Amino acid sequence: MEFDAVVLAGGGSTRFGGVDKAMLVLDGVSLLDRVLMATAGAVTTVVVGPVRTACREVSWTLEEPPSGGPVAGLAAGLGYGVAPVVVVVSCDLPWITAADVQTLVDGLDEHDSHEARDGLGVRDGFGLRDGSGREQWLAAAYRRSALAGAIAQVGDPRDKSVRRTLAALNLGWSEPSRAGDDVDTWSDLDG
């Protein structure tokens, strides 16, 4: 199934003392490039954040107004591409791979047959759980129409909660894995 990718890379990195988290390097590769390599199978990739050096050709955009939070970033990113599936990833997922991204996309179809048979409807998205089992809403594949509809429901997307915005969607989740572990502090890079 074809998919587009929206990479969120516009946060303020306040827990890193203002250091640009997207450009932090782990094992010789920036966090942004790690995510871009994992999403290389996308038809279209847009990075929501300031233009930076990247390992491959992508589109760039900013949420309007800038620094409006991840829901505003999603709204801006949905303006790119037309694939029916959108893989949403934050730039701070250094252990996600192309195989994990494919699992997200495949998870939509895999669950559809079971859910439809059980009368639960079609899944709107499928996401990763981190190593502790926490659902990572910004490491997921979503049906474009469902994601766009949820964002439209909140009106102005600035400073809205991702969980509240997407709470009405029918989502499935992976088993816990390191692929869903994000980097929020310096110690997370040691993980």
Rank of each mutant, 00 (worst) to 15 (best):
S132A: 11
L120H: 04
G107Q: 02
R129W: 06
F126H: 13
L147Y: 00
Q102T: 13
S132Y: 05
F126D: 01
D124G: 03
H114C: 00
T97F: 13
S132I: 10
V105S: 09
V105I: 14
T97Y: 15
H111N: 13
R134T: 07
A116M: 08
G107D: 00
D124M: 08
A148N: 13
G125R: 00
L147D: 00
Q136S: 09
H111A: 01
Y142L: 06
V122D: 05
G127Q: 07
R134Y: 03
R134F: 04
E110G: 05
E110H: 12
G119C: 07
A116Y: 04
F126T: 13
S145T: 15
R143I: 10
G131F: 07
R123G: 04
D130Y: 09
R144D: 04
R143M: 09
W137H: 15
A116C: 05
D106E: 15
Q136N: 07
L104F: 06
L108R: 02
Y142K: 08
Q102A: 14
A99Y: 11
V101I: 14
Q102E: 13
H114S: 02
D100R: 09
G125W: 08
F126V: 08
A140C: 15
S132P: 03
A148L: 15
L104K: 07
R144S: 05
V101M: 02
L128W: 02
Y142W: 09
G127W: 01
D100Y: 06
H114V: 03
E135L: 13
A116R: 09
D124C: 03
F126Y: 08
E110D: 07
A116L: 14
R134K: 04
D118V: 01
D124W: 02
D106I: 08
A116H: 03
R123C: 01
R129Y: 13
L108Q: 01
R129N: 01
R117S: 09
D124S: 08
Q102W: 11
Y142R: 00
L128F: 12
A139S: 14
S132R: 03
V101Y: 09
I96S: 02
G121D: 06
T103K: 05
L147K: 05
S145H: 08
R117V: 07
R134Q: 08
D109N: 11
V122F: 11
